[in-house]
Design a protein around this nucleic acid. Structure first.
Lengths: 207, 207
DNA sequence: TTTTATTCTAACCATATAGTTAAACTTTAC
DNA sequence: GTAAAGTTTAACTATATGGTTAGAATAAAA
C-alpha cells in the first residue's frame, strides 16, 4: 500500500494546481489527470467524483490557511505583537500559495454553505479573544474603541486583498510580477504599523 | 426596432445576474435564457456566443464600477475630501451591485488579460495625480511619506474586501445579512478616518 | 510458483451544453 | 393590404465532459 498513498497525494497536488487556477466550474477532470500524468479513470478510483476531489482540495486549502493565521489571534500576546504575528503568519503562508486567497474567495461566492460548514466543524471563534482584548484596551485608554468585527475586517482586508485582486492592482499600477512582489514584501513590514495607527486614540485636531 | 433594444437589455440584465452569481464557467446559457424568459436561440441571435455575451456584461460591469470610483481620484480636491469622496462613491456603487466586486475579482483570476485590455483601452491612470498629491503632502510634512501604490492598495482593500469576502466574514463573525449590512454602513463612515490615520506623520512614541 | 488483492488503463456511455437551422410570427415600409 | 425585414421559437446537432466498465499490469500473500 505504498503506491496508493503517493498516487493519492500526486493527484491531490495536481488537482490543487488546476482547481486553484480555474475554480471548480472551470476545472476539467481530464486536465487534472494530465497534470498528474495519469488516466482519468484513476481520479475516480481514488476520489469517487469531481465534487469529492474538490472537497478534499478545499479542505486542505482551508487547513493550510486558517489555522496558522487564526490561531495567533488567540495567543496571550499584547495587541501590538499579535498584529505583527498575524501579518507575518499570513504573508508567510500566502506567499507560498499565492492562489489560495483567490481560490477560497471564489468558492465563498460559489458555495457559501461549504465554507460555513468547514468553519462550524472546526468550531472556530476568532472574535472571542479579540473582543476582550480590544475592550480592555479601550477602557484603559490605550486604544481607540473599535468593534472586533471592524478590526478583523481591517486586518484581513489589508493583508488579503492585494493577493485576491493582484491582477487588477498590477494592471492599475503598471507593475510587473517582480515589482509587485516587492510591493507585497514592503506591505508585510508596513501593515502592522498602519493597523496600530487606526487603533491609536484620536488626537485632537492634528491640523 | 423598438423591441430589439428592450430585448437586448432584457438579455443583458438576465445575463448579468447569472454571470455575477456563477462566473463565466459556472453560468449556463439555458439558465440565462430562463432568467430572461426567452428562448436560448435568441441569446445567440443578439450576442453570437457565450464569450461575446460575457464580454458585454463584463464591459458593462467595469463601466459601472471604475469611472465613478476612479474619477474622484483625479479631482482637484484636498486628500482628505478625496478619500471621503472615494469611499462614498465606492459604497454607493457597490451597495447597489453587491456581487460586482466578487465578479470582477474572479474574472481577474480567470482571464487577467481581459481586465488589462479594458484598462488599456480606457487609458486609465489612477496613480498619476495621487503621486503628486502624496509627494507634496509629504514634502510639507502634512502627511507621512507613502507610495501611491500602497496608498491605493490600502484604500481599495478596506473598501472592497468586505464585499469580496462577505460570505467568509459573515461565517467568521456569525453576522446575518442584515447585521453585516449594518457593519458595512458603519465602515462607510469610518474608512476615511482610518486611511487618514495611516497617513498622519508618525508621532514619537505614543506608548 | 500460484493465487489473490490492489492499482491502473483503454475504450466506452450518458448526458449536458454551446451553438444551428428552418420556419413561424410580428412589425415596418410601401 | 401586401411585401419585406426583423424578431422569436421548437427542434436539432456536434461535442465536451463526468463517470463507468472490463480487463491488463503489478504487487502481496500463500
Amino acid at each position: 500500500m505504498k503506491k496508493s498513498s503517493t498516487t493519492e497525494s500526486l493527484i491531490l497536488h495536481a488537482a490543487e494546481r488546476i482547481f486553484f487556477l480555474r475554480g471548480f466550474d472551470g476545472a476539467r477532470m481530464q486536465e487534472i489527470a494530465d497534470e498528474a500524468s495519469i488516466n482519468k479513470a484513476l481520479l475516480h478510483y481514488y476520489f469517487r467524483s469531481k465534487e469529492r476531489l474538490f472537497d478534499a482540495v478545499f479542505e486542505a486549502a482551508v487547513s493550510r490557511l486558517l489555522p496558522p493565521v487564526l490561531s495567533v489571534l488567540h495567543l496571550e500576546l499584547p495587541l501590538r505583537e499579535k498584529i505583527t504575528a498575524f501579518v507575518e503568519a499570513y504573508f508567510t503562508t500566502v506567499l507560498e500559495n499565492p492562489f489560495l486567497p483567490g481560490f477560497i474567495v471564489h468558492e465563498l461566492q460559489r458555495n457559501p454553505a461549504h465554507f460555513r460548514a468547514v468553519i462550524a466543524a472546526r468550531r472556530i471563534d476568532v472574535l472571542e479573544t479579540l473582543k476582550m482584548q480590544l475592550h480592555e484596551g479601550a477602557e484603559s485608554g490605550i486604544w481607540r474603541r473599535i468593534s472586533a468585527e471592524q478590526f478583523m475586517l481591517n486586518l484581513f482586508s489589508l493583508c488579503a486583498f492585494p493577493f485576491v485582486a493582484r491582477q487588477g492592482m498590477q494592471a492599475l499600477s503598471g507593475k510587473n510580477d517582480h515589482e509587485y512582489l516587492l510591493l507585497l514584501e514592503e506591505r508585510r513590514t508596513l501593515i502592522s504599523g498602519w493597523v496600530l495607527d487606526m487603533l491609536r486614540p484620536e488626537t485632537v485636531n492634528v491640523k
